[in-house]
Write a protein that binds this DNA or RNA. Structure first.
Lengths: 118, 118
DNA sequence: TCCTTAGTTCAAAATTCATTGAACTATTGT
DNA sequence: ACAATAGTTCAATGAATTTTGAACTAAGGA
């Protein structure tokens, strides 16, 4: 079972920008970038919204071609679609991620973690 | 008389992306970039929409910090706010413009021009 | 002064978007 | 087979966005 993804040449610039223009989705992308190489499942983003709401935002990211979602058993492994984005819009993803990294206004994943050393 | 612009450090990444995520506004930015250095007034964008509609989109761009609008007599001279954007989000504007340049799906300014040599 | 040009503001309508809870599917473990 | 887990789908709601036309302001030229 595989989920629908746009072909690389169907990825639209304005759609990508629009999708990244939402703080929750930008925070998702930032977190994906911070763990690049490690596929993440939906529940790792629960700090950013309800399960239902994340399902919505993750679908938007996938449909815009920003992420790839692989179905593995009962979970979905989500990765940045860096190869295709870099080929199509060189430098865009990197500059967005670099800017997002030091954006304190963005919601953060793991914000509710407790420092065990406290 | 001057119009309200956000301070450079108030320019928000997700807001800039959201604003650029609209095809009309992206086309405006692409055209501004193609004439960079030359300040344009609103009427030069009339190919992209009605006067009222352009006023709306140009205000969005200005309020997001993407453009600067200078009031000169009865017209507004619009320029890309490249200095501040580059300082705040290095590489972002360039990669967006580069991608927009060869985006055939975007509406074009000057699309209705007649080739006099025909 | 009067007319024109450039652009804004306003209110209304149409659309799209984000968020929620309840119900659902599908897979895994016991 | 049963229960639990992971995530989706649906319908509803509210909020934000886009678009339009009519009325407006302000500056410039005749």
């Amino acid at each position: 079972m595989t989920l629908p993804h746009p072909a690389a040449d169907q990825i639209s610039l304005s759609n990508v920008l629009a999708v990244l223009g939402d703080p929750t989705r930008l925070a998702i992308v930032r977190y994906l970038a911070s763990k690049e190489g490690v596929p993440l499942n939906c529940s790792q983003f629960l700090d950013l919204g309800s399960k239902t709401n994340l399902s919505y935002h993750l679908a938007k990211l996938r449909e815009a071609g920003v992420t790839r979602t692989e179905v593995v058993g009962t979970s979905r492994l989500i990765t940045l679609r860096r190869d295709d984005l870099d080929a199509r819009f060189p430098g865009l993803l990197d500059s967005v991620i670099a800017a997002a990294v030091d954006d304190t206004a963005l919601p953060a994943v793991g914000a509710s973690e407790i420092d065990i050393r406290a």
